[in-house]
Amino acid sequence: MLTTMKVCLYCQNKNNEDLKQCERCGMELPIKQPQSKKAKLTFFTKAFWLIVIFCIIMVIYLPR
């Protein structure tokens, strides 16, 4: 049986998903976990290249 864990945003302790407060520090656990660093990096990379391509097209397209 695979159980998912919620990570406390304050102390980074891993808790069972059914808990509402952290076992270690007692802080309220988030309802939705924040995005992982990999997801943020992937989004940033795609946005960066989209902007680069747009700038290159505008340099070629716009009159001088």
Rank of each mutant, 00 (worst) to 15 (best):
M1K: 09
N16Q: 14
M5C: 06
K40N: 12
E28W: 00
T42E: 15
M58S: 14
K38H: 08
G26P: 08
F43S: 13
K32R: 13
C25K: 07
K6I: 01
M27N: 13
L41E: 15
L9E: 03
K20S: 14
I53W: 00
C55Y: 08
N15K: 05
V52F: 05
L2Y: 06
Y10G: 11
A47R: 10
N13W: 11
C55N: 12
Y61K: 07
V7F: 00
I53E: 01
L29G: 01
C25H: 05
P63I: 02
T4G: 11
R24N: 15
Y61P: 04
F48R: 06
F54G: 12
K46E: 09
Y10F: 10
F44I: 10
L19Y: 09
Q12E: 13
P34L: 00
P34E: 01
T45L: 13
L29D: 00
T45W: 05
L2G: 10
M5L: 10
K46I: 14
I56G: 11
F44S: 12
C11V: 02
V7W: 00
K40M: 11
L2C: 05
F43C: 05
T4A: 11
R24S: 15
V59D: 04
I51K: 06
L9W: 00
K20I: 07
L50R: 06
Q12D: 11
I57W: 03
I31P: 04
K6N: 09
T42F: 09
C11K: 00
M1H: 06
